[in-house]
Design a binder for these strands. Structure first.
Lengths: 196, 196
DNA sequence: CTCCTAAGTCAACAACGGTTGACTTAAGAC
DNA sequence: GTCTTAAGTCAACCGTTGTTGACTTAGGAG
């Protein structure tokens, strides 16, 4: 069994390849352990590289984290989506971010501890959720976006960090069914009370 | 102006008094910074005491945290409460825990990072929310409790940790008005989908 | 006044972990 | 083959921080 030349692993990777490998390992570690508990030495070991390489490519531990926690929600355009379809459009995207993007979990874990991470998470609310919400809603868009975000955030923490049994084991469809009316409510219900 | 003898501050406090002062300072610090970022030296300095005292009274940093994060939700009995009154009964208690009990914030901040804290938070769901919910609900009590908990948790993180502007500044009444239908839904709506 | 004990201080240890700078070696160019 | 450069290693530094044990002192009991 012979391997094509292109696949033969080079004894030394290219710089971008190592950089990418480090970043990937960092994503996983930060997502699983949070900023403070991750040791640069561990990340380096995951990749099979000296800790100095991490510094070489990312300057500092915080630089590494910033790169690892970089990601976009990339919410779909909600213009013209009916009230009853909102959840069905939004939830798959949330599941995607939760389960396929270690950057989100990294940020989530760090947000309760690091001022910088909290700011980044906050920017997610104002920079990505709020505009998407504004497309379907006329009044109180910031409030509605924040409330929606709080529910999504709470679900993420409960399901993926705390792993609350009923939530962690629940199928996507069932969870969506439970949450759909909440999304509908936050995005479309008329305001109940004047802001004092 | 003379002070009664009992009030005259002793040059040395009693052991329980110092212990309590340390615990209080720890609560505040842990609630504001999370487990890893708090230095025993800071806690000691807050109280005006040597770091060794912290160890003397709590054995270890983790022991101190365990004591600081100790608290009970103490939810009211929901038996006989009408569907429309659930939020009005529950929310004041949640506000109380959020704003007056630094133990909760400590736990919240630590839960995303420490396995032990996460377990403790989880026990809050199963040991305190779930039983309270079971009193008003026949079917799917665990799921309902978990979903309710996820929303409450999300609100706490958004309002007190991230300080998302619309939520952080929103009055209690308005927030309750927004959330009430959600609580109602999670606790009383008939199940929409079979668990696969 | 004098002990005795509990409250408290002090200095230092030891491990940990981010960061650095000098050195080594692979691999492509000529 | 040799030279150059980029990829990578190595050892050590140095600040931080939980933790310890020996020492000090206040203050009530006798």
């Amino acid at each position: 069994m012979t391997y094509p030349a292109e696949v033969t692993p080079p004894r030394r990777r290219s710089a971008p390849a190592t950089r990418a490998a480090i970043l990937e390992a960092a994503r996983t570690r930060f997502g699983a352990q949070g900023f403070d508990r991750v040791r640069l030495r561990d990340v380096a070991a995951d990749v099979g590289v000296d800790p100095a390489m991490v510094i070489r490519y990312f300057g500092t531990k915080e630089g590494l984290f910033a790169a690892a926690a970089e990601f976009t929600l990339d919410l779909p355009d909600l213009t013209g989506v009916g009230a009853d379809d909102l959840a069905h459009v939004l939830m798959p995207r949330f599941f995607g971010v939760w389960e396929d993007d270690a950057g989100f979990l990294s940020l989530l874990r760090a947000a309760t501890t690091s001022e910088a991470a909290a700011a980044k998470m906050l920017e997610l609310f104002t920079g990505q959720v709020a505009p998407a919400v504004a497309a379907v809603v006329a009044d109180r868009a910031p409030e509605r976006a924040a409330l929606l975000g709080s529910q999504i955030l709470g679900l993420a923490v409960s399901r993926y960090v705390l792993k609350v049994p009923p939530l962690a084991e629940m199928g996507r469809a069932e969870l969506e069914a439970w949450v759909a009316p909440v999304i509908r409510h936050y995005l479309t219900s008329p305001v109940a009370v004047e802001s004092s």
